[in-house]
Structures are given as C-alpha cells and as structure tokens.
Design a binder for these strands. Structure first.
Lengths: 327, 327
DNA sequence: TTGAAAGCGCTAACAA
DNA sequence: TTGTTAGCGCTTTCAA
C-alpha cells in the first residue's frame, strides 16, 4: 500500500480512500492511484482492513456442516453461499464430523472474525457458543436446532414429512412398516421417528433400527427382510440410510415387492425400477433461508429467536406405491 | 487479551508467550494466564496474530471448485480438507461457476492471506495469478491443469480412462458409440474426447455432442437414439452428463439394450438395472494428492512444477457389458 | 524470565 | 479535499 502511495505520489489515506470508493477524492488523484494499483498488482489485506475498521466486518460468513461431501449438506452449503455471494460476502465452510470437531471449527471461524456463523449441528450441546452469542456473534442453526442455546434456526418439517411418508405407505395397505434411521439422538432423526410413530400408531418391535450409516443400513435391511414376519414396507429416514436400503433391496431382488419411501431425495432416484418414492427436502432453499436469517441479524435485527419450518414434498415414483401383499 | 493480562496480573507479552507455548514462562504465571483465559473465554484473534507474526502464516488454505454441491468436486474438497486438517490447517472453499467468479474468489482468498490455494479451473486462463505465484503464492491445480501458468497439478488419467471405457465397449462388439461430453474447451473434456477418438479410430459424424449439462444430455440422448442409424452404445464423459443420459435411456425403456459407460462414478449406480458401468476416478484421493503437493511447497519444496496423474478404474456393472445388436 | 515499546497493513479521527 | 497521526490485537525485538 505504501508502494502504491509512493508511486502515485499521494498519502496512504488517499490510497485507502480511493480503494474504499470515498467520493471526495479528486478524480485525477484517484486515477493515479488506480493506475499504480494496477501496475503493482496491489490487493488490500482484508485481515488488516477488518482489524482496523470501526465495524470490524470481515465480509465473510461461515457454515459448519457434517460433511462437505454429503450431497444434502453440500446443497445447504451452496444455498448459503449463493445468498451470501449476492451480498458480496464470502462463505467459508468446514466438515464437523462430530461434536468435538464442530466446536473446534466454530472456534476457528470465530477467531477469524467471521460476521456470522451457520451451523448444522453435529453435537448435542452448544453451550460453548453461549458467551460468543451473548457477545454479539450472529448465529443460525440449519437442519437441526441448537441445543441448550436460544438462536435462530431454519429447519425442514421433519415430523410432518415422515408422517406423510408413512401415511402414504399405510394408504397402500401396509401395516408392517420398518423404520430405519441414523443417529437417534439427532433432532432430525427423533422428529422423523415421531412422525413415523404418529402415523403407524404403535411401533412393532423388531421393526425399528437406528444409529445406521450406509453400510449398516444395507446389512440391517437384509436382516430385517430375512426374519420371520418381515415388513412389507420400509421407511428410511436419511439419505445414506436410504442408499444402503436401496442397494440391499436391489441385491435381494425385491425392489418391486417391498415398498420403500426415503426421507430426502437422492440422485438417479427416478432412473431406478421402480423409481424411488421420497419425501424431498429442498436443501438449497434451507441454506438460503438460513442465510436470510443470518443476514437479518447482521443487519441489526433484534427480537427473539426465530424458527422457520420448511415444507417437504412427497415425490411418488413407484417404490412407495407398491401395494401390500399378504404378510 | 489485555483483560486477560489484567486479570492474571501480567503483561501482554506474557499472555502472548503463554498462548504460543513459549517454554520459558514460569509455570505459575502460565497457570494464572490459562485460568484467566478460561474465565474470560478469551480466543486469540487469528487475523491480528497472522498480521504481526514474522512468518505471516494464517494456518489456512483454500480450494476453489466449480460447485461445492457437485459430488465430484465436493469429494475433492473433502480430500484436501482431510489432508489439511491432519496438519492443523483450516480449509476454506468456494464455488467458482465460471472464470470471472474463479478469479474473484482467488483474489478474495489471496487478500485473506491463505497459505496456499488449490484450484479446479473453471476458466481458460490463469495468467492473473502469475504475479502472486511468482511472489510466493503456493498454488496447485486439481482435476485440470492451470492454463498459461506453470504450477503443480493433480490430475486423473482422463485420456487413458476414456480410452479404456470405449475400448471396453468395442470389445463387446460396438462400433457406433456416441460421445456425450460437457464443455469442450475444458482440459478434462478434451482429454476424454481424445481417449474416445483414440479408441474408435475415426469418429462418426452425428455421434459427438459436447457442451452438455444434465438437462441437455437428457434431451440429446433422446434425439440421438431417435435419429436414423442410432448408436448402439454411449460414452458419457462427465457425471452430470451421465445422469442425464441414464434418465433418458430409462425413460425410453432401453437401458437394457443400449450399452453405456460413464466417466466418474455416481451414487446408486449399482442399484440400477442393469447396473451402470463407469470409469471411476477417486476424487477424494485427487484432493489429498493436491493437498500433498500444496503442503510440500508450503514446507519449502522448490524445483519445477510437478504433475501427478491418478489412475482410473473400470467398474463393470452391466450397462457396459451389453452386447451390440445389429445396427 | 518478564515487561515496555515498536510495528504488521490498514482505517478513521483530526488538522490543515 | 488531502495529509498526519493514532491505534485495531497481536508478536517480537530490546532492556531490565
């Protein structure tokens, strides 16, 4: 910056003002400065700039998701990024994997002075953010609400969606409907399980399996169908669980006999035979909504925490419309 | 920080030294400092720290990919992130979409003083990075090499993989093999087209379609198959193109008659009927390798640019093994 | 071993 | 309108 000032023959303040688009710098000086900037390839040091700046804005927000490579979360990420970009704000991101890493990431972003933080919780306790939040950190939760902390959240209608899925299966005559879900303590999972339970009335023992990942879902699907009095339909409550179950049904050759509805859409769902019926969320919209909440706070909105519920949508593609056969 | 110093009754330097693990701080002082830190929930301002620090290390790297929500790129992202995390370094990321945005993002990251930059090129010209690169910016390209700039790169064996895919189809008797690809000017696309051409010898007119996205691929697949003298097999050279083609073949009801090999694996490929044969890359490993190259430079490695080629793997699942019927 | 003071690159108050 | 100067939060000489 001082090289620029020297080359343009002006003071540091004039350079700073020119760069920040201050209107009351003489056009000829501004031109000299811009010329020097171009010649030297000067770029402002954003960190130093934010450090000195009165409002301390870094023009960046961060999102912490479970896994940047999970299609659901990466679409949420993209939603936040699109919203932020339209406002000239950079979006940082990181994969939390687990509660400890989530906390480490949150602290890393906070100490980099992001203007706001979006978190898709991987951990069951966000009290560690209480102090920062009280001190003015703009914080929004997405997909799942924060625990032990009062903050904005953008969520899907998990219970309603799950209930719709299972009721759809029941309307086709199914009564023995297995529930396969991921980590039971997660808000999303428990909401979806509630939805399932509401629809079926009483849950048959042996038909509920939780804490599954893709591989466990594959194995459990095979086990459940091999057991006596097997279910005639499956409700899988998370995208990776759905993938595991689809592969298992396929390998068993029963995709056209065992009904199946998954929560969250997956690629190629409509190219399967039969197509995969799902309760789709709109992860991109979820991300955008989280962005809206976050920017509202950044723009000075006060008031109590808001919780926005996004609707889900049942997409009939065949697998959820298979009629129940005598069980 | 000065609150911490006041509470602990020491000077700023002692706080700084304690936080940075300087061994020659008296244990009792260090304990007092740490206690105060805990009480106040103090976290160092990384930006200010990096600003003053002699080596100016920010403990962060960035990766620019076309779309954080594309499964291929998000897996690359995750590979870099995993490698960096093991070394205590934060990974930032952004979606470039196009050349202009790529440049804007690169400049944003550079002005945030990341220690290194990984780019999956979206643009055809990286001369804008030349000055920074010469000035010491650690730069690695992934998936596609940089253009008009000499820098390290981690690439898949695009030509070899494409050639293997098409030769595989030819071994099953196919002679009329359509090529469907994404933006032709991309390095990856042109390499894959070269591989296709090498395998088939001479390219039949009307069987090559480029610059496709998922929706265009869907439409073009239908058109190509409806035309006189249609191909008996398809080679789709990118994941979104593959998805479009699969859906089109499915909707036409010809997935068991028209052979198909895709470049890059897609979810549920093995749950289709027939399964989708692909030439798989390992995007996670590609990301890790880019990370290795980057960190080697960050650790002072000199020498000429290195280009690492990662092998691809043909995964036979059925669609690529359909025999040619009389055309 | 500890503290006082200078300064990283920048912006903002103040003076000219 | 422009320049001078102080200082953001931190690290790092330099002296004590």
């Amino acid at each position: 910056m001082k090289d620029v000032a020297a080359l343009a023959g002006v003071s540091l303040s004039t350079v700073s003002r020119t760069i920040n688009g201050d209107p009351k710098v003489a056009p000829d000086l501004a031109a000299r400065v811009r010329h020097a900037v171009g010649l030297l390839g000067y770029q402002r040091d954003e960190a130093a700039s934010a450090l000195r700046r009165a409002d301390r804005v870094s023009a960046s927000v961060a999102i912490i998701i479970e896994d940047v490579a999970n299609p659901f979360f990466s679409a949420v990420h993209r939603g936040v990024e699109d919203y932020a970009r339209e406002r000239g704000v950079l979006t940082l991101s990181g994969s939390s994997d687990d509660a400890a890493r989530e906390r480490a990431l949150a602290e890393a972003f906070v100490s980099r002075r992001v203007d706001g933080l979006v978190i898709a919780p991987a951990g069951p306790d966000h009290r560690y953010l209480e102090r920062e939040h009280a001190a003015g950190l703009r914080l929004v939760f997405v997909d799942r609400p924060g625990h032990w902390i009062e903050a904005d959240a953008a969520l899907s209608d998990n219970a309603g969606g799950a209930r719709a899925a299972v009721e759809h299966l029941m309307a086709a005559g199914h009564r023995r409907i297995a529930y396969l879900g991921d980590r039971a303590w997660l808000f999303t999972a428990s909401e979806r399980f509630q939805g399932h339970r509401t629809a079926v009335g009483k849950v048959a023992p042996g038909l509920v399996h939780q804490d599954l990942g893709e591989e466990r879902a594959y194995a459990v699907t095979r086990e459940v169908l091999a057991a006596p009095d097997p279910p005639t339909a499956l409700f899988t409550s998370q995208n990776l669980v759905t993938l595991g179950a689809v592969r298992a049904l396929h390998d068993l050759g029963v995709r056209d006999r065992v009904a199946h509805v998954g929560f969250d859409d997956v690629p190629l769902a409509d190219a399967l035979a039969p197509g995969l019926t799902v309760v789709a969320q709109d992860p991109h919209a979820l991300g955008r909504t989280a962005g809206e909440l976050l920017f509202a706070r950044m723009n000075g909105e006060h008031g109590p925490p808001r919780r926005i519920l996004m609707p889900t949508r049942l997409i009939r593609r065949g697998s959820g419309e298979l009629a129940a056969v005598s069980g």
